[in-house]
C-alpha cells in the first residue's frame, strides 16, 4: 500500500470538511471493498476519513413507517437486531448471507450502498423497498440513486448517513451466490407494499435493476406461480466463467420465485 493519512472525525460535518479539504481523500466505512482495492493498488488515496467514530451513524431506529438504518451499521448488527427482525425480516436474511462472518463483522450498509458493486446484495433491497438514501445534505430516492456500474448519484464529498426503508407489507430476498466469492451471481428482492410490488435484481447486470413485468404479474397475484413463465432476456446481462448471460436470465426467474415464496412466509 502507498502511504496515506488517516483521519477519524467525530461528527458528520467534520467528516465532510475533511473530505472536501483534503485532496484525493476517501471515506472509510467497513473497508471490505476499499481496503482490498487499495491493497491491489487499484486505488491510491492520499487520505482516508474513517467514519467509525461518529456514533449516530451506527443507529437503527423506527421513524414513522420507516426503518432507518445508519450508514455505519454493520451487517452483523442487522442480523442480530430485534428491531430489524420485527419490521423487515428480509433484511436479516439478506445481511446474514453477505460475504462471510468476518465480512459481516466489518462491512456496513452505507459502504455497500455507496460502492454499488453490481453483485452486492443491499442495492437490491434498497431498490425493491423504494428506500431513501439519506445524506449529509439531502434525501435521494433509490430509483435515482443507482446510476451504473459502481456509479451512484452521490456528489463528490457527499456522505450517506442512513438508509430509510419504508416498512413493506412483506418482502423476500433470494440469492444465488458464487460458490467462490460468495457474491450474488443473481440476487432478487421482492417487496410488497400495499397493492404495489417491486422486484429488484442484483448480480446480473452492470447495476441493480427492476423487472416491471414481474411486478405487474405479482400485483395481480402474489404467488411464485404468477411469474414462473416470465422469461428474462439475456441481452445486456453479465456473463463470466461462472455464469453465462442465458443462465443468469434463467436464474432471475428462479430466484424471483424463491423470493416471493420467502416473502409469503414472512422470512
Amino acid at each position: 500500500m502507498k502511504s496515506f493519512a488517516f483521519h477519524s472525525p467525530e461528527t458528520v460535518p467534520d467528516a465532510f470538511a475533511l473530505l472536501n479539504d483534503v485532496s484525493e481523500s476517501k471515506l472509510l466505512a467497513g473497508g471490505m471493498t476499499l481496503l482490498p482495492t487499495i491493497k491491489q493498488r487499484l486505488a491510491e488515496p492520499a487520505a482516508l476519513i474513517d467514519l467509525a467514530k461518529i456514533p449516530q451513524l451506527s443507529e437503527i431506529a423506527v421513524d414513522e413507517d420507516a426503518l432507518v438504518i445508519g450508514a455505519m451499521v454493520r451487517h452483523v448488527d442487522v442480523v442480530t437486531s430485534a428491531l430489524v427482525r420485527s419490521k423487515v425480516p428480509m433484511l436479516v436474511h439478506l445481511a446474514s448471507g453477505i460475504g462471510d462472518p468476518a465480512v459481516r463483522n466489518r462491512g456496513t450498509i452505507g459502504g455497500s450502498v455507496a460502492n454499488n458493486d453490481p453483485s452486492a446484495d443491499y442495492p437490491a433491497a434498497v431498490l425493491a423497498l423504494d428506500a431513501i438514501i439519506v445524506t449529509d445534505r439531502r434525501e435521494i430516492p433509490a430509483s435515482t440513486f443507482f446510476t451504473g456500474l459502481f456509479e451512484t448519484s452521490l456528489e463528490p464529498s457527499e456522505i450517506i448517513t442512513s438508509i430509510r426503508f419504508p416498512i413493506p407489507s412483506t418482502a423476500g430476498y433470494a440469492k444465488f451466490k458464487s460458490p467462490a466469492s460468495r457474491y450474488a451471481v443473481v440476487g432478487v428482492c421482492v417487496a410488497k407494499a400495499g397493492g404495489s410490488v417491486r422486484v429488484a435484481v442484483t448480480g446480473s447486470g452492470p447495476c441493480v435493476f427492476r423487472v416491471p413485468e414481474m411486478e405487474t404479474a405479482l400485483e395481480t397475484s402474489f404467488e411464485p406461480a404468477a411469474i414462473a413463465s416470465i422469461k428474462i432476456g439475456a441481452a445486456g446481462l453479465n456473463s463470466d466463467i461462472h455464469a453465462d448471460a442465458e443462465y443468469r436470465a434463467h436464474l432471475i426467474t428462479v430466484m424471483a420465485k424463491k423470493a416471493v415464496a420467502a416473502a409469503i412466509q414472512g422470512l
Binding site: 458464487s178 460458490p179 467462490a180 466469492s181 457474491y183 466463467i241 461462472h242
Partner: peptide
Amino acid sequence: NAVYDEVSGQLLSGSFMDYCM
C-alpha cells in the same frame, strides 16, 4: 477449474474470488 482466456492467454481464475476452493 483453472481457466485461461483462449486469445490473450490470461488466467481468468486467478484468485480465490474466481477459482472455487
